[in-house]
């Protein structure tokens, strides 16, 4: 791969000094990354799968994504994590694939916050 040529300055924007907010490592860039992370850890802790089983699934997801053109620079890591979570949950019969798809449709139809909650620009209680 050309981007791994020894003289390519391969780390480029990836090097630690140019990673704002990452002085010590554990950073979730968006809430969904943390949620997906916690789901896999919680299921593992509850004994639904071993860690080697998890690693086999996520590393297969990473290889699949790379084969489909993902440069795999770390920024897409939690996308792979989520895809692996969906796969292992179905593989371990913790949830049905159809139920998962239906739940996505339901969630899409009921986005968070979409509950006809009017903005109130005055105190709703003064006392």
């Amino acid at each position: 791969m050309s981007h791994m040529a020894p003289d390519a300055g391969w780390l480029g924007g990836l090097a630690p000094p140019s990673m704002p907010g990452d002085p010590s490592g554990p950073v979730f860039r968006e809430p969904w990354e943390a949620q997906a992370f916690a789901l896999a850890v919680a299921l593992h802790r509850a004994g639904h799968f071993t860690w080697p089983e998890w690693v086999a699934v996520i590393s297969a997801e990473i290889r699949r994504a790379q084969a489909e053109g993902d440069p795999d620079l770390g920024s897409t890591y939690y996308r792979h994590w989520l895809a692996a979570l969906e796969k292992i949950v179905v593989a371990k019969s913790l949830a049905d694939d159809v139920d998962l798809r239906l739940r996505r449709l339901e969630c899409a139809a009921h986005p968070p916050g979409k509950h006809n909650h009017p903005a109130r620009r005055e105190p709703i209680r003064v006392g």
């Binding site: 981007h3 391969w10 010590s24 490592g25 554990p26 950073v27 440069p71 770390g74 890591y77």
Partner: peptide, 15 residues
Amino acid sequence: GLPPNWYKSAPYRAR
């Protein structure tokens, strides 16, 4: 803790 972004990247893993 959790790994930094570069640790998860293909260039680091390969190079």
